[in-house]
Design a protein around this nucleic acid. Structure first.
Lengths: 225, 225
DNA sequence: ACATAAGTTGCATGGTATGCAAAGATGCAC
DNA sequence: GTGCATCTTTGCATACCATGCAACTTATGT
């Protein structure tokens, strides 16, 4: 029971494998069809046919048609959560988050082609892009919990107002700091991807990513002052 | 139905006023019905009936049913844009953004009751919350443009690598910095609202808001290290 | 008052989404 | 491998969402 929890790879039962395959097939069919004909022109019927299942089954896997375009990897959140918890203790919270996200992005690069198609589809229709952003929020909430846990382990809980030098209204234990961290890091990743996909030939993604987190750690200073 | 709001610069023509009134009536009906019966249980027919128009007219104002719950104030973005451009030159970009958003939030507090109902509705169903977040992205893009304009006026465009101390891959003029700023500030506002609505009795919203931006300006330091 | 532009409405149509019950796979014990 | 319990798939019925179109009603300018 302890060894079978390989991340997303072949799980134990045949049922689970089939379910994962079906879900993946539906998501992939959705993205490919959308990339070719435009997301608005792709019906649930077409997606289902391409994946070889019935329309009804599609809705057993996704709550709405748009979800098929948006949901990429369901357990990416769990991996990042672990990465944050297992990160070296001498990393700052922001740095731990950065490393976790960088690892996840590298993972996404594994399915190079699908990732690009996916980005193309989302970018093509703002409606879906918005939905995608929203989808990240659940993951951010999980990450915030993981960060809170990490803070509880690494340092003390401190008194309210202990560290920042300015009066802390809520105290670190109340959850504001981890949530802010997760939300801001998410925004940073989205900005990086956005900027990179717009200037793809000028800079490597990792360079943009690094610069963004450097700006964050410096407190977003005015560039020329 | 004949509520004529005087805030949004009551436009000259009768037509425009009627349109605004109808849109406001639809949005308000949607939020009130959703607050009472749950968003999922509110049909377009019910909203339209409450606002005194036909179902078909509803779809002349909103592209989808969910939009009626999400869209708050269409020209809030324009106001923030102006606020950023007209902010005192000695404010840091982050501070200018903070002031613009604070002013907008104060504006939202004007319709106290509706604002709370709105927050309640969005918070009750994650689906809408995600959509709401996505809706903010368009505004963020506009804000990023305004910030870029402000930076162009205030300072020089600088050479790449001029200000931050670390190599700037893209240069300030390429748009990464303003976009990051807008995205992060948006995330900060959302986090503030979230935290405040969860701990409403512990701290005033403005205190949370202030603390969040202080943390940002300090580079999100680890609270106890 | 008249012509024009703009907004509203009903109807028809097709896609989206859910509940339900029957049929088909799978897992497990024997 | 037989049989039973569980989960999954599927078709059908139903309701709601969303858009195009044409007819009708209401402002606006002269």
């Amino acid at each position: 029971m302890q060894l079978m929890s390989e991340k997303s790879a072949a799980g134990g039962g045949l049922r689970e494998r089939k379910k994962r395959a079906t879900r993946a097939a539906l998501a992939e069919a959705a993205v490919r069809l959308a990339a070719e004909h435009g997301a608005e022109k792709v019906t649930v019927e077409a997606i289902s046919a391409e994946a070889g299942v019935s329309v009804r089954t599609f809705f057993n896997y996704f709550d709405s048609r748009d979800d098929a375009f948006v949901v990429v990897d369901a357990d990416a959140g769990e991996r990042m959560r672990r990465a944050v918890l297992e990160a070296p203790a001498d990393l700052s919270p922001l740095a731990a988050l950065r490393e976790a996200m960088a690892a996840e992005l590298a993972e996404a690069e594994a399915q190079h082609e699908l990732w690009r198609l996916h980005a193309k589809v989302l970018h093509a229709s703002p409606h879906l892009l918005a939905r995608g952003v929203g989808a990240h929020m659940a993951a951010e909430a999980d990450l915030a919990d993981a960060l809170a846990e990490r803070l509880r382990r690494t340092g003390d809980t401190g008194g309210p107002g202990s560290g920042t030098g300015s009066g802390s209204v809520t105290g670190a234990g109340s959850g504001l700091y981890p949530r802010l961290l997760a939300a801001v890091a998410g925004a940073a990743v989205r900005t990086s991807m956005d900027h990179w996909s717009a200037h793809q030939e000028e800079a490597a993604f990792l360079d943009v990513f690094h610069e963004v987190f450097t700006l964050l750690a410096a407190g977003l200073p005015a560039p020329s002052a």
